[in-house]
């Protein structure tokens, strides 16, 4: 690690702390955010996620080495952590810390985009099923049942069989399109109750079309469970990517992702545990932070606790 990268790391930590402070400052103005921060872990969750996102974005400034470069395949193979190599080096003498930093881009990217795809598809399907009911609902919900019953790995393996080398966007789509079933069900249940509200009837009486009713009146009011499931979804997708990469069908080496870093380090887990532990810890940290944030959001967005009557 050079002075410059230490400095960049310090700036990243300060920025993350500032972000938490800024959000917290807003909390004094709004009942909702106050409820969010009532969770002692929520602030830590936001801070850790903010830090990792900053690290991912500023990877070239923070990583001391090129993540793919084999520094010295004989002399620096499985080097234990030191001041130069913060988290040691792996079996190919690559700097683990640099790979974690660049891997954050890939892993968080897949997590975020995959969850975005899943939540969009799930919300749309759930809203359509709940709004139209009857056969539309029956068809879509049986699809969801099948989706939930099929092992996801199996579907993804089929997708992998179609592509020789899975492009990033295909992986994102494949993960997203196999992760929306739970969200779909959740949104459907919410829409079933929302569609009977008087303001939805009023919109229909005023001549609003189905699209207008769903997007203006139904979905915005179903946002709370969607946001919570999105936060949890990012963690799930991240874990899925890790399993896929571990199986060798996710992100292909040498591009670092936290999942394939575990795979790379697995054979030497007893002699050089730092290679796998670092990536594993990173994954756990993100998932735990997301769960903490989701818990806080669940309370913050709970309409039953809304001040006054809603």
């Amino acid at each position: 690690m050079t002075l410059g990268t230490w400095f960049a790391l310090l700036v990243a930590i300060i920025l993350a702390a500032e972000a938490v402070r800024a959000v917290r400052h807003r909390a004094f103005g709004s009942e909702r955010w106050r409820r969010f921060f009532r969770h002692p872990t929520a602030a830590w969750g936001v801070g850790i996620l903010a830090f990792l996102v900053i690290v991912a974005v500023a990877a070239p400034l923070i990583a001391p080495f090129d993540p793919d470069r084999q520094l010295d395949i004989i002399g620096l193979k499985n080097h234990p952590p030191s001041w130069t190599f913060l988290l040691g080096t792996d079996v190919l003498s690559r700097d683990v810390w640099s790979r974690i930093v660049y891997g954050a881009r890939v892993s968080l990217g897949i997590g975020g985009l995959g969850a975005l795809v899943a939540v969009s598809v799930g919300s749309l399907v759930g809203a359509v099923a709940g709004y139209y009911r009857r056969w539309v609902d029956a068809v879509l919900m049986r699809t969801v049942d099948i989706g939930l019953a099929l092992p996801r790995i199996f579907i993804l393996l089929m997708a992998v069989a179609l592509w020789d080398r899975l492009p990033f966007w295909v992986l994102v789509l494949a993960i997203g399109l196999t992760s929306w079933f739970g969200t779909g069900r959740l949104v459907r249940a919410e829409v079933l109750s929302l569609r009977e509200r008087d303001y939805v009837l009023a919109a229909r009486a005023l001549g609003a079309g189905a699209g207008g009713v769903i997007f203006r009146h139904v979905l915005p009011n179903a946002a709370a469970p969607v946001i919570v499931s999105a936060a949890l979804g990012v963690g799930n997708v991240l874990l899925l990517e890790a399993s896929l990469s571990f199986l060798g069908i996710g992100i292909r080496p040498p591009t670092p992702s936290w999942g394939n870093m575990i795979a790379d380090g697995a054979p030497s887990v007893y002699t050089a545990p730092w290679t796998t532990v670092a990536a594993g810890l990173a994954i756990s940290l993100v998932v735990m932070s997301l769960n903490a944030v989701a818990d806080g959001l669940r309370d913050a967005l709970d309409p039953h606790e809304e001040g006054g009557a809603t």
Binding site: R197, D198, Y199, P220, N221, A309
Partner: peptide, 14 residues
Amino acid sequence: QIVFQDPYSSLNPR
């Protein structure tokens, strides 16, 4: 047109 009974659920809270 129609005017509803419950003034709390007849307006979209968002």
